[in-house]
């Protein structure tokens, strides 16, 4: 039990750069060292973690924890992976305001702002390259980009949750229902 907590605590502590970086760590620790699951199980778990909402790291911790020790195990693994972030960021948040008053720190953050914009563009572009080159996903992508940029230009606020739900609905109708019918005809 404690091992589960401790293992995910270490994964949380030594992963920089979010969920995708964590996949490599989970593979090394959980599959190769601890042998808590096989490679096939890992692939299946990744598919579930990526297609369900929420941070991928949390999804993985909950899944592995449950498979090992049930509900309590999943709670422990999730707490383990969250705790390092919680402590580190909490401490930083106490000092960041005061810290920013030092001129050099403010200068460094002028640079960091640029890197953040670049990183988000890079992540978005990386995902875009994997998007199927078909009419429907491409046009949905263009419409969302258009809507979001127009909203920004005219400073209108609108919750993008509605866009996500609309996209899901279109997906259910086009791929889920019509796709199933096509399968039935064959």
């Amino acid at each position: 039990m404690l091992e589960l907590f401790w293992t995910f605590f270490k994964i949380g502590l030594f992963t920089f750069g979010g969920g995708y970086a964590m996949i490599a760590q989970v593979k090394e620790t959980i599959v190769e060292k601890k042998q808590w699951m096989t490679e096939d199980e890992l692939v299946q778990m990744l598919a579930i973690a990526e297609s369900t909402p929420g941070p991928i790291a949390i999804n993985m911790a909950t899944y592995v924890g449950y498979k090992r020790k049930g509900v309590l195990g999943s709670a422990l693994a999730t707490c383990g992976v969250v705790l390092p972030s919680l402590v580190i960021i909490y401490v930083i948040s106490l000092f960041l305001d005061a810290f920013m008053r030092f001129q050099p720190v403010a200068w460094a953050f002028t640079g960091i702002k640029c890197a953040v914009a670049f990183l988000i563009l890079r992540a978005g572009y990386g995902l875009f390259k994997k998007l199927p080159r078909k009419v429907l996903p491409m046009s949905m992508f263009v419409v969302v980009m258009g809507i979001m940029l127009a909203l920004e230009l005219f400073s209108v606020s609108f919750s993008s949750v509605f866009l996500i739900l609309a996209g899901g609905l279109i997906g259910i109708v086009v791929y889920g229902i019509m796709g199933a019918k096509k399968g039935a005809v064959k």
Binding site: A117, V143, V144, G167, G168
Partner: peptide, 30 residues
């Protein structure tokens, strides 16, 4: 559950929206 066609359809429909949201955020921050 994750093999169900309705769920798979939902995920496939959400995907282009999420990518559009991320890229537009990147463009705006840039």
């Amino acid at each position: 559950f994750t093999d169900h066609p309705i769920f798979k359809g939902f995920v496939r429909g959400v995907q282009p929206v999420v990518i559009g949201l991320i890229l537009s955020t990147g463009v705006i921050l840039f």
